[in-house]
Amino acid sequence: MKTSVTMLLLVFLFCISCSSADVINDTEPPESGIYFPPFGSSTWEARSLSDLGWNNNELQPLLDYLEDQNTKSFMILHDGKIVVEAYMNGHDANKLWYWASAGKTLTTALSGIAQEEGLIDINTKVSDYLGTGWTSASLEKENLITCKHLLSMNSGLDDSTNGVEPEDLEYMADAGTRWAYHNVYKKMQDVLAEASNSTFKNYFNTKLRDKIGMTSTKGGWLQLNDFNVYWSDTRSMARFGLLIYANGKWNSEQIIPEAFLNEATNTSQDINKSYGYLWWLNGKSSFHLPGSQLKFSGALVPNAPDDMFAALGKNDQKIYVVPSKKLVVIRMGEAADSETFALSSFDNDLWEMINELID
């Protein structure tokens, strides 16, 4: 049965207790009056569509479209407050779902924290932390690869396999000269574990999860096909998106350094202008996609605001952050159409409908 506006209103009441050029995401920072939901409570303040001057008539068509596109959950935050929260296709607020590659940005956040603590320097070569031989490249070529290359997806290692064992990580080009979407970024998690003298999971829990109230009793890093994949409820994903929207600050505590986060959400290299440190960037003049060396002209998501940046995961897991509109948008679920690794046609279609709602 289609998600109804009546159901959404019940959720609402419950919650109350430039151009296509290579623009930089340097819009005015969010106002200081951002709302941060409390820890350990189901209470999360809300705002109504009418209060924001949005088009109520476009809400139900949006929800119907989302349900038809295999969505499990969908949220829109405005300055931290919930405007839309909907669950469908057998999902609910207490169920978990995987972030897939949208969770890459959690590694980015931890990298910024570790650098601020003096544990790492992303401009340092990876072998300084992991030792030599972590790839099958020659020592000369391996030593060209820095932590920044892992975060920027331009390590130069062969992307034809998903594995991250030394035998999988073969030299293809000098670091910095070739962009390719690759699981090698996961070696950054090993760097963080070594540098923090802990495990990646423990470092994540202490430095990020627990500081913003992401659920600790449900979800977490689960091992799937030799890789850690993050699972959570929808509101935990929304909390992380809110942290990013607030320039890395939660209430009065600066958790992710603002300067690092600004680097992470702007072009990180000259090849794929629409990629930062594991974040996808809109409003640039061109982009590359996973599994291809082709260069595509235009913005990543033409219907979305130019300053939008996003965490994109397999089968259309989404965190969209739009500073100019004061929005964080979350989508979890099955693939909207066919299986994808990051961007899909769903992004642009969804933003067309979001624009009808918010404009």
Score class of each variant (00 low, 15 high):
R235N: 03
F14E: 09
A173H: 12
N162K: 10
A335S: 10
I34W: 00
W99N: 06
A246T: 01
E339W: 12
A335F: 00
S338H: 13
V23M: 14
T132M: 08
H78T: 04
D22F: 12
E167D: 14
V23Q: 12
S160N: 07
E31W: 10
W54L: 08
Y171F: 15
K186P: 00
P257M: 02
L151E: 02
Y275M: 01
T265V: 13
N272K: 08
Y230G: 13
A193S: 15
A335Y: 01
M172S: 04
C15K: 13
D306R: 15
T124F: 05
V84Y: 02
K148E: 04
N183T: 05
L66V: 07
I145E: 05
G219T: 01
T177G: 09
D233H: 05
D128F: 06
H182D: 10
G33D: 12
M88S: 15
P37W: 09
N55C: 02
D51P: 01
F14N: 12
I319L: 05
V164D: 05
N205M: 02
D190T: 12
L278E: 01
G283R: 14
A175S: 10
A21H: 03
K72Y: 09
I354F: 02
G176K: 14
I113P: 02
F346N: 15
G276T: 02
N348Q: 15
L106H: 07
G283S: 10
L224E: 10
K125Y: 08
L49P: 03
P290K: 01
F260D: 05
T107S: 15
S101E: 01
V321Y: 09
D359Y: 03
N202P: 01
V126L: 15
T146M: 11
W179H: 04
Y275P: 01
A175W: 00
L192Q: 13
W134E: 07
G283T: 10
M332F: 08
K284R: 13
P37E: 03
L169D: 03
M188R: 11
T340A: 15
W44C: 11
S196M: 12
Q269S: 00
A342M: 07
G156H: 04
